[in-house]
Design a protein around this nucleic acid. Sequence first.
DNA 1: ATATATTTTTAGGTTAGTCTAAATTTTTTA
DNA 2: TAAAAAATTTAGACTAACCTAAAAATATAT
Lengths: 220, 220
Amino acid sequence: MQNSFTEENYLKIIHALSGRDGVEVSTNALAESTSTRAASVTDMLRKLAEKGLIHYKKYQGVTLTESGEKVAIKVIRKHRLWEVFLVEKLGFGWDEVHDIAEELEHIPSEVLVEKLDAFLGHPKFDPHGDPIPDAKGNLTEPDYLILTDVQVSEKVLMMGVLDHAPSFLQHLDRSGITLGAVIEVKEINEYDKSASVQINGGPTLFISLEVSKNLLVQRR
Amino acid sequence: MQNSFTEENYLKIIHALSGRDGVEVSTNALAESTSTRAASVTDMLRKLAEKGLIHYKKYQGVTLTESGEKVAIKVIRKHRLWEVFLVEKLGFGWDEVHDIAEELEHIPSEVLVEKLDAFLGHPKFDPHGDPIPDAKGNLTEPDYLILTDVQVSEKVLMMGVLDHAPSFLQHLDRSGITLGAVIEVKEINEYDKSASVQINGGPTLFISLEVSKNLLVQRR
DNA sequence: ATATATTTTTAGGTTAGTCTAAATTTTTTA
DNA sequence: TAAAAAATTTAGACTAACCTAAAAATATAT
C-alpha cells in the first residue's frame, strides 16, 4: 500500500537521526524534527509500527525496519534528484532548493524518478555534496572528514556541507567556498579554533569553528 | 492565505466545467468530477464561498469569483507547464503525463513556475494542444473547430484533443494522428458519420464519429 | 535507594475532508 | 398545478494528523 506524505517524512527523519549505525531515535527528537508534539509522534509511531515500517517498543525509541529503510531511501533519492534538477536545470541557488524539494520528494511514480535520473545524467551527488542513492536503493555515504580534523598546511577538497541552512550556504557563497574548491588550512587559532584558509590558491580568509564544523572535505 | 490541494482541485474543476462563458456548475457535476459525494461537495462549496473564491447560493450552482478564477488559472498553468516538461524533457508519451501533472500542479512556489516556464522556452501549448496561461494569468482559448465541422475535401491542421484519456491518445498514436499533422477529409459516411481521412498526404484511414468529435483542428 | 526530574504515553479533543441517511428544495411530468 | 422525481443540503459520523493535560515509565541525583 501507499504511504502518506506525513509517513514518508517521519521515515526520512528517522533515517537521518538514526545515522549510519541505525541507533534508536527518541520520541522527543522526532517531535523536534517534525515540529510537532511528543504525543503526536507517539500516535504516528504506533501507526508506522503497525505497518511494519519501524521497530518500536514503548519508551525504547525507534529504528527503521528493512522495509521502512527502503521507503526512506526512496524519498531521499527523490529529494536529492529534484535538488539537482532545480540547481542544474532551473538555475536555483543551492541555498534555495531545500523547501521545494521537500514537496517534490513526495510525488509518486517510480518511472518519473527513473526518467528524471536519466535526464540529469545519473548524478552521484546533490548540490550540497550529499550522495544520491541509486535505483536499487544503494546509498553509500562517502567518508569525508570535517574540516576541523584537517591539520595546518594540509590541502583538501571541499566536498559537502553538514548544515543545509540557507544562511550558512549564502555565507559560503560570499566566501567563495563552493563544492570542489581547494582549501588549504594556513593557520588555526588556538584561542577560538577559528582558521585561516586559502581558497583555490587565491584569497585567504578566516572561518569560525562553527563554519569549519559544517564543511565536509576530502584529502587529495 | 494558502489554498489546500483539495481546494485547488475544486477550483480547477469548476473552471473546466464552467466553460468560457462561466456558466453555473452543479453540485452533482462536481461530485462526479471529484469522485466524491454531493454532500461532500456542498461542504466544500460553503468553505470556498466563505473564502471568497466562488459565487454560491444554495441550490443555484456555483461560478468562480475573480479571485477563484485566478487561483484556477495558476493551477492550470502549472499543470500544463509540467506536462510540457514531462513530454519534452523526460520523454513521456502524451498519454502518460496527466496523473503525474495532477500532483505536480499543486507544488507551491511562484518562482519555481517561472523558472520552469523559462527553462521550457515559454511554451504556448501543452502536449495536448491546450493553451498555457501566461504568468499574468491571461488564458486565451484559441477557437479551433472540431473535426466534425470540417467539410469533405478540406485540409486542416491537427491542433489538439478534447478527450485526454490515455486510451484515446494511444489510439491516435497508432493512427499516426499527432499534433501538427495535416488532415484531409476525403469522405464522410452518411450512415454513421464516420470519416475517411488522409494524414500528412500519406495513408488514408477511417475514423469514427467518436474520434472526430474529440479532434480540434484549424483551417490553414 | 529513594526522591526528583525528564521522557513518553494515554485520554480526550480539534480540523479537514470525506461518508450515509434523512430532510428539503427545485424541477419535471402528467 | 399538484404529484413524483431529481438534485441539493443538513445532520451526524468517520479517519488522519494534530493538539493539551494528566498519568505512567524511565533516568538522574542525592
